[in-house]
Each structure stands twice: as structure tokens, then as C-alpha cells.
């Protein structure tokens, strides 16, 4: 367990990129998992193509890459439960909450803006 010296900051991981085309989504998730050890107030934001990280039915056999999407479902076990998804980003892509593989909070742009503004540290990928 990591020592944060009693400091608890609000960390937000902002995901705006789709999985597989680039490594950002996967390596972002690796940071999120590590952050759980520091007892910080962690949240994840998914907007723009980042919402594709959470879509059901990912099957990567044909591209010979690791399907890391089940890991999002494991986040709850690490006490990372604040997953915010941009409503407009879902709608633009013809998606709804039912298309996602994990429980999330769907938020409007204004709500997302409020959440971003209250963070101490924003890590974007």
C-alpha cells in the first residue's frame, strides 16, 4: 500500500480516445489501477471516442491484442466507482447506457464541466 502522507486529492482520469487504435486507453487504465493503492478520490471521465472503451462485445482475437475491457468491470473491486460518461458523446455515436459493459453515471456537458472543475489533478489520455 502506498503512502500519500494523509493527503487526499481529487484525481480525474479523462479518456477521450478509443481502444486498440492507440495504446492510450490501455495504459491509462494501468495508471487508474495503480492510483487505487494511494487512497485518493479517483474518478474516470469518458467522453468523445473515450466512450468506445466501454462498449460491450469487444473481441480482439482477430487483431491479436489483449481485450482489456473486462478490467473496467473490475474497478469496483478497487473501490473506483466514479465512472462518468458524457451523454452527448454517447448520443453522437448512436450509443446508449445499455451498450456499455459497466455501470456508469451518464452526465450532461454541464455536469461534466462541473466535475472537471472541482478536480485537483486531471490526467488526460
Amino acid at each position: 500500500m502506498a503512502d500519500a502522507g494523509g493527503v487526499v486529492k481529487k484525481f480525474m482520469f479523462v479518456n477521450r480516445k478509443s481502444p486498440y487504435g492507440t495504446i492510450y486507453a490501455l495504459e491509462s487504465l494501468e495508471v487508474v489501477l495503480i492510483s487505487a493503492a494511494f487512497d485518493q478520490d479517483v474518478s474516470l471521465a469518458f467522453l468523445d471516442d473515450g466512450v468506445y472503451e466501454l462498449t460491450k462485445g469487444q473481441s480482439t482475437k482477430g487483431v491479436e491484442m489483449k481485450n482489456f475491457s473486462p478490467t473496467y468491470r473490475a474497478l469496483e473491486g478497487y473501490d473506483i466507482e466514479k465512472l462518468y460518461v458524457a451523454q452527448e458523446s454517447l448520443e453522437e455515436r448512436g450509443l446508449s447506457e445499455d451498450d456499455l459493459l459497466v455501470d456508469v453515471q451518464v452526465v450532461s456537458r454541464a455536469e461534466m464541466a462541473d466535475l472537471m472543475a472541482e478536480q485537483d489533478v486531471v490526467l488526460s489520455f
Partner: peptide, 8 residues
Amino acid sequence: HPSTQSWL
């Protein structure tokens, strides 16, 4: 500003 967000 208390925090910075990089839009990448």
C-alpha cells in the same frame, strides 16, 4: 489556476 487540464 488551481488545476490544469490538457486536452490531447
